[in-house]
C-alpha cells in the first residue's frame, strides 16, 4: 500500500484552492452483479479534466470541481461553483487496473470489475 501512495503525488495546491468552494455530496446510484459494481454519480457542470478518482486501501475518493461562467448581470442564481466530493468503501476484491470511468451528460459512470478470485464459482461434481 505504501507503494501506491508514492505513485499518486498529493497536489496540496489544488486542495487549498478548492477549499473555498462549497463542498457538495453528489447523489449516487450503485448497482452490482456477479462481475462488477457500477457507480453513477450526478456531477453536472464538471469537466472531464476536473474529476479525480483515487483508490487507496479500500477507499474510493471521488472529487470534481465545477465552475460557473458568469456573463452579464445576475438576475438570480440558484447554483454556483462547487466541489463535489464523496468517499466510498470498496471491497478489496476490485480489479483496480481495469476500472473504467465514463462521463456523460454530467453523470460519472464508474465500472468496478471484480477480481476473478472474487467471482462466484459453480463447482462441478464428477462421478467416478
Amino acid at each position: 500500500m505504501s507503494d501506491n501512495k508514492a505513485l499518486t503525488p498529493s497536489n496540496k495546491h489544488e486542495v487549498n484552492a478548492a477549499r473555498e468552494l462549497p463542498v457538495v455530496t453528489p447523489a449516487v446510484d450503485i448497482f452490482e452483479n456477479t462481475n462488477e459494481i457500477l457507480l453513477h454519480a450526478d456531477m453536472p457542470g464538471v469537466e472531464r479534466e476536473n474529476i479525480s478518482i483515487n483508490i487507496d486501501n479500500g477507499k474510493l475518493y471521488l472529487s470534481g470541481t465545477r465552475t460557473v461562467t458568469d456573463s452579464g448581470a445576475t438576475r438570480w442564481q440558484e447554483f454556483g461553483a462547487a466541489e463535489y466530493s464523496r468517499t466510498f468503501s470498496v471491497p478489496q476484491s476490485i480489479d483496480i487496473p481495469n476500472i473504467k470511468a465514463h462521463l456523460q451528460d454530467g453523470v460519472l459512470q464508474l465500472q468496478l470489475p471484480k477480481l476473478e478470485a472474487a467471482k462466484p464459482k459453480q463447482i462441478k461434481i464428477t462421478t467416478g
Binding site: 452579464g72 448581470a73 438570480w76 447554483f79
Partner: peptide, 12 residues
C-alpha cells in the same frame, strides 16, 4: 435549478 443572467442584448 437555474441561473439567470442579463447580458444586455440577451438573457442567459
Amino acid at each position: 435549478r437555474t441561473n439567470l443572467n442579463d447580458t444586455g442584448d440577451n438573457l442567459e
